[in-house]
Amino acid sequence: MLSVKSLDAFYGRAQVLFGLDLAVAHGEAVALMGRNGAGKSTTLKCLIGLVPHAAGEMTLDGVDIARLDAFRIARLGLGYVPEERRIFTDLTVAENLEAGRRPPRQGSPDWTAERLFVLFPNLAEIRRRRAAHISGGEQQMLSIARTLMGNPTLLLLDEPSEGLAPKILEEIATTVSALKAEGLTILLAEQNLRFAGAIADRVAVIETGHIRWQGAMADFAADTEAQARYLLA
């Protein structure tokens, strides 16, 4: 479904990604794991078109997305949930959802605000509140819900676990797993193995802009040596 080949990207003069290869199949949940600064966020930002890439190919369902503007890539079905959440704090919760709304897409469920309020009951209670005045966990849920309003076929989640209390993380993990069960394809950038393990089937480990390890989540979860090498120190 998603195919990335030999992707190079720079921040200023510093190269961040070096010939990165990555593929995600339909219905799969892949965790892109690695330390801070390894290139996880940059990979996702390249995919959605927010960071320009220097070289490489990117296709979504066979469509070349390498040179498209962000909004066109999003319209093709790539949903992006940024690391900093980036909700529109000047808008209400309901308005944030409206800002993310796109027409229904063939072959994927049509999300509405009402359906999302069932999925995220917390948001229903605060739908009229300005998003500036909601908690960090609620912001994360809103950010995911807002992206779902665009009826994406592939969801890019950038470190949803960062800075959240364990209880809220658990809720989010449950929700994302439910989305996956409904057939949504997921690419998750994550450092938190426990959180990623609850969601992903497969792991791609990224280190200093290269993919170093790929395989089943179960294998990675069992391989404490690989974990130590790529995630800890």
Partner: peptide, 23 residues
């Protein structure tokens, strides 16, 4: 809806683009 999109783009144009809004 147009007004909501305008306000969203006012605050964070890049994110608005990532949500499929043609700025």
């Amino acid at each position: 809806r147009w007004g909501i999109l305008v306000r969203a783009a006012t605050q964070d144009p890049e994110m608005a683009g990532a949500l499929g809004i043609n700025q």
